[in-house]
């Protein structure tokens, strides 16, 4: 004889209904305002798929990925330099962060683009060329965005490295591992757990900050959108088009970030929670094979 199950009346949450109604009302008002605006919504879907916009979105994607990779690699190097016992390297790293974090990225982009004012000719010994020919909009955007990002990333990486238990370093030193082996094999993989979430944040920021690259004539999404709006006069419409693309890019990236975080969480919890996809599949299977158990009387 199973014990009698409790069937109680749940607590009523009237506040939720009030809040929900208020939200709906506000959304309706905003919707009415937008629908009365002088915006030709009909042309937006076409422009989203427009070839010029598509290639702009592609440029935004790859400049932000490349700048982020540059920022990440340089950021790790700067973080390690900053924590080095060598006073010269740690001071250099500190100065780098101070300089690149302390000046606007817009200024940095323009400086790289106009670097020929300082170095008219690029001479690497084995390679010599006019600086204006070398410093393309792409390269200026990459350096401007990437080197700025490195300053932020180095602080994130440093925080991640410092979060790893000191016992880990001691254990690997006791095994005869050198400092660089310890960093590469033991500390960084564990620091990644701390590093990935804020780095994802940084990347989403980068996707949008890359729109500043229009000042160096790099034809990313925002530049393409404003170019079109200046000829077609569809100004607001193009803002919508660009926003739709930025939202799509950041959404896709968020999914990737979820799986990346999961990867670096291995070993930190006994059992990883299932991914949304696994959960969905499990639920579907349950519907197939089980009937709902009868409620005990």
């Amino acid at each position: 004889m199973p014990p009698e199950q409790i069937k109680a009346i749940p607590v009523r949450h009237y506040g939720r209904w009030v809040a929900g109604a208020a939200v709906v009302a506000i959304l309706v008002l905003i919707g009415i305002a937008f629908s009365n605006a002088k915006i030709n919504y009909g042309i937006i879907p076409d422009y989203v798929k427009d070839g010029t916009i598509l290639s702009g979105a592609w440029h935004t994607l790859y400049i932000s990925v490349l700048a982020m990779v540059l920022g990440l690699v340089l950021g790790v190097i700067l973080a390690v330099m900053r924590m080095s016992s060598n006073p010269v390297t740690s001071t250099v790293a500190w100065f780098y962060v101070w300089l690149f974090r302390g000046t606007p990225v817009l200024v940095q982009l323009l400086l790289w683009y106009n670097i020929s004012l300082v170095f008219p000719v690029l001479n690497l010994g084995f390679y010599k060329n006019d600086m204006n020919a070398v410093m393309t909009p792409f390269l200026a955007a990459l350096l401007g965005l990437g080197l700025n990002e490195a300053a932020y990333m180095s602080e994130i990486v440093r925080a991640g490295i410092q979060s790893v238990d000191e016992g880990q370093t001691e254990a690997s030193h006791a095994l005869g591992m050198t400092r660089s082996q310890t960093l590469r094999r033991v500390v960084l993989p564990q620091a990644m757990r701390m590093i990935v979430p804020p780095t994802g944040n940084e990347y989403i920021n980068m996707l949008k900050t890359s729109s500043l690259a229009y000042v160096v004539q790099f034809s990313e999404l925002m530049k393409r959108a404003t170019d079109i709006s200046s000829t077609s006069l569809a100004v607001a419409e193009m803002f919508f088009v660009a926003s739709i693309w930025y939202l799509m890019l950041t959404s896709v990236f968020s999914v990737g970030q979820y799986y990346l975080e999961r990867h670096y969480a291995r070993g930190s919890t006994r059992n990883l929670p299932p991914t949304p996809l696994q959960r969905l599949r499990k639920n579907l299977r349950m519907f197939g094979s089980f009937r709902r158990p009868e409620v005990a009387r």
């Binding site: 238990d165 016992g167 880990q168 001691e170 254990a171 690997s172 030193h173 006791a174 095994l175 005869g176 591992m177 050198t178 033991v186 993989p189 564990q190 670096y264 291995r266 070993g267 930190s268």
Partner: peptide, 21 residues
Amino acid sequence: AAQRRDIGMVFQRFNLFPHMT
């Protein structure tokens, strides 16, 4: 590091590498 290779150490708090099996 080379000197430490020949000396094993076991810690109070194990200090296993948590990201490795």
